[in-house]
Amino acid sequence: MSGLLQQNYKEGAVLSFGELLLRIVPDAGGEWLNDNVLPFFIGGAELNVATALALWDVPSKYFTALPQNGMSAQIVEYLSRKNIDTTPVYYQGNRVGLYYLTKGKDLKHDALIYDRANSAFADLQPGMIDWDKVLDGVTWFHFSAICPAINQQVADVCMEASKVASERGITISIDLNYRSKLWQYGKHPKDVMPELVKYCDVIMGNIWAAEQMLGIEVLGDIHESGQKSIYLKEALSSSERIMAEYPKCKAVANTFRFDATGDIDYYTALYYEGEFYNSQEYHATEFVAKVGTGDCFMAGLIYGFYNNLGPQETLEYATAAAFQKLFIASDATTQTAQQITNTIKA
Rank of each mutant, 00 (worst) to 15 (best):
S2D: 14
L5I: 10
N8K: 08
Y9P: 01
K10R: 05
G12V: 05
V14Y: 06
L22I: 11
N36A: 07
L38A: 02
A50I: 02
P59Y: 03
T64D: 08
P67W: 07
Q68W: 04
M71S: 09
I75T: 01
E77N: 11
S80N: 09
T86Q: 02
Y90W: 14
Y90M: 08
Q92M: 08
G97H: 04
K105F: 07
A117F: 08
N118M: 08
F121W: 10
T139K: 02
T139M: 05
H142S: 09
F143W: 15
S144L: 06
I150P: 00
D156M: 13
D156W: 11
S162M: 06
I174R: 00
L196W: 10
I216G: 00
L219S: 14
G220Y: 12
K228F: 07
L232S: 07
E240C: 10
E245T: 15
K248I: 12
K250Y: 06
Y271P: 00
Y271M: 12
Y277Q: 11
N278S: 15
S279C: 13
A284Q: 05
T285R: 15
F287H: 12
G292T: 00
C296L: 07
G304V: 03
G310K: 11
P311K: 13
T314H: 11
L315H: 06
K325I: 06
T333L: 06
Q339K: 12
